[in-house]
């Protein structure tokens, strides 16, 4: 599938993982810090006193997943209702309801959301 994307640093600012957020603020002013991070990210983090252990990774993962959930809600809010029937059912606390048709000759299955009635 490969598609190349250039990352927009401004977009990444919302991922303010502490203590990375402090480093991000300093990079704007300290070019040497930026160069050291690019040359050796793990080593530079250690020099800056950031210990990358399991607890650190769990903390970052939790913050990261929280941001994903927030991003998902925001993006889903921009999608028209008719394109997100299952999401709406889940958000409303209802089971996902579908009507399934099975072709008796071919066995082909067709599934459509069931949004009216029981």
């Amino acid at each position: 599938m490969q598609r190349r994307f250039k990352v927009d640093p401004e977009r990444l600012k919302r991922f303010s993982f502490e203590p990375f957020a402090g480093l991000q603020r300093r990079i704007a002013e300290d070019h040497d810090l930026k160069r050291r991070l690019q040359e050796d990210l793990p080593g530079t983090l250690e020099e800056e006193g950031i210990v990358v252990d399991d607890a650190f990774r769990q903390m970052v993962s939790d913050q990261w997943h929280a941001q994903i959930e927030a991003d998902t809600r925001l993006i889903m809010a921009t999608i028209p209702e008719n394109r997100k029937p299952y999401y709406r059912m889940v958000q409303s606390g209802e089971p996902v309801k579908v009507r399934v048709s099975i072709d008796p000759k071919t066995g082909e299955i067709t599934t459509v959301p069931r949004e009216e009635g029981p």
Binding site: F5, V7, F15, Q24, L41, D71, T78
Partner: peptide, 29 residues
């Protein structure tokens, strides 16, 4: 397609902490 930018952000953020400039190839989802 609605999540394309978000996917790039999510991957880059967790791999780099946003600390370095990168280009990203989205290989598979």
């Amino acid at each position: 397609v609605d999540f394309l930018d978000a996917l790039i952000d999510w991957g880059t953020a967790i791999l780099t902490g946003g600390l370095v400039v990168t280009e990203v190839d989205l290989d598979r989802v």
